[in-house]
Each structure stands twice: as C-alpha cells, then as structure tokens.
C-alpha cells in the first residue's frame, strides 16, 4: 500500500510541476483573441500553411493591440502590426478620443476570418472578418454606450520582413458578406 501512495504522490507532484511550467504560455495564448482563418476559397493564389499561421497570429495580435490602444488611448501600441490607412485612421480616432475624454473597451470573443484574395505576387491579402465583439464606450467613468452586436470588417494585410501588417481595417455593414 505504501509504495502505491508514494507513486501517487510523486505523480501528482510531477503533474503540478508540469502544469506550473506550462502556465505562462497558456496565459499568453489566452490573452490573444481567438482567430479562425478559412482559406479554402482564396484566389487567385493558394495560401501556404506557414503564411496562414503567420497571418492568423499577427491578426490576433493586431486586435489585441487595437483593443489596448483605444482603451488606453495610446497610439504607440499600433506600431507593431498596423500600417498605412489602418494606422492613420486609428491614430486619428485615438487623438479624437483623447480630446473628448472618451475611451473604448472591447471584449473580444473571437474572429471568424475568411481569406478571399491573395495577389499573384503574394503582396496583398484580403480578409473578411466576422467578429464577436462587446464594445463599451466611456466618457470619463460614465459608460455612454454598450453593444454586443456582431461586427464585420474588410481587412487588407501586406507582408513585411517578418510579419503581416494590417494595412486597411474597414467596418462594413452586416450584409456586405
């Protein structure tokens, strides 16, 4: 009986140790919003698996950065994954929010993303994003607006040296796709 107890204790200890070691990775992964990329109908060029993984990861990180940016009204958070018109527009939004004393809180419940266009030279990729977002807007401490409606975005991403950038992020009507 005693060896059985000892082995059980050892097993439990080892399990706890492993669980503790893997904790930071799961925390980090959990903080990124869930993005599911569908690329079956992409044209004219097929998407490579590695590219799909990179786009998915970068797009999820971009949404995390966006949410933090409009919550804290900090444009420096846009530097890593936004460029072009997307960055210009978000920068303007943050400047306006700061001027008006507003901030926006996003509770991101995930993005169902369909890759629809990948240019022949691999320089641009267009995505349709059906996002599940809770949005709350605060003026100071007062919540002035809250919405849980699903939102749709048309996204253009372009590759950089080591990542895919969000070049355009446009909210579109629910009947757009």
């Amino acid at each position: 009986m005693k060896p059985l107890l000892l082995w059980t204790a050892l097993f439990v200890f080892a399990f706890m140790l492993l669980a503790r070691e893997s904790e930071p990775a799961s925390v980090s992964a959990a903080s990124l919003p869930k993005v599911v990329l569908h690329a079956e109908s992409i044209a004219p060029r097929a998407i490579e698996q590695r590219t799909g993984e990179m786009v998915t990861r970068n797009y999820a990180q971009a949404w995390l950065d966006l949410a933090n940016c409009v919550e804290a009204n900090r444009t420096d958070l846009l530097n890593d994954l936004f460029t072009g018109e997307a960055k210009t527009r978000l920068t303007r939004l943050v400047a306006d929010q700061r001027k008006s004393g507003l901030r926006t809180h996003y509770e991101d419940h995930g993005h169902d993303v369909k890759a629809v266009f990948y240019s022949p030279d691999g320089g641009e990729m267009q995505l349709e994003d059906s996002a599940q977002l809770e949005m709350q807007v605060f003026d100071g401490q007062k919540m002035i607006y809250s919405s849980t409606s699903p939102r749709k975005y048309l996204v253009l991403m372009t590759p950089g040296a080591d990542r895919w950038y969000v070049r355009s992020l446009e909210s579109v009507g629910n009947d757009a796709f």
């Binding site: 210009t88 929010q97 001027k99 507003l102 926006t104 002035i144 446009e170 909210s171």
Partner: peptide, 30 residues
C-alpha cells in the same frame, strides 16, 4: 457623441432640435 471608425465628435445639443452632422465627420465608411 458621434462615434465613427476613425473619428469622434462630442458636443452639446438641445434635444428636440435636429443635429447636423458635417460632411467631413462622416468621411470614413463604416
């Protein structure tokens, strides 16, 4: 308040009267 994809407007209004939104306040689609 007018909250758009790239622009925010905040101003005082009198309810019962129409609120005019300028063209450049709705330049961004969304």
């Amino acid at each position: 308040y007018l909250l758009g994809p790239s622009h925010v407007v905040k101003r005082s209004v009198q309810l019962g009267q129409d609120i005019t939104i300028a063209a450049n306040d709705v330049a961004t689609s969304g």
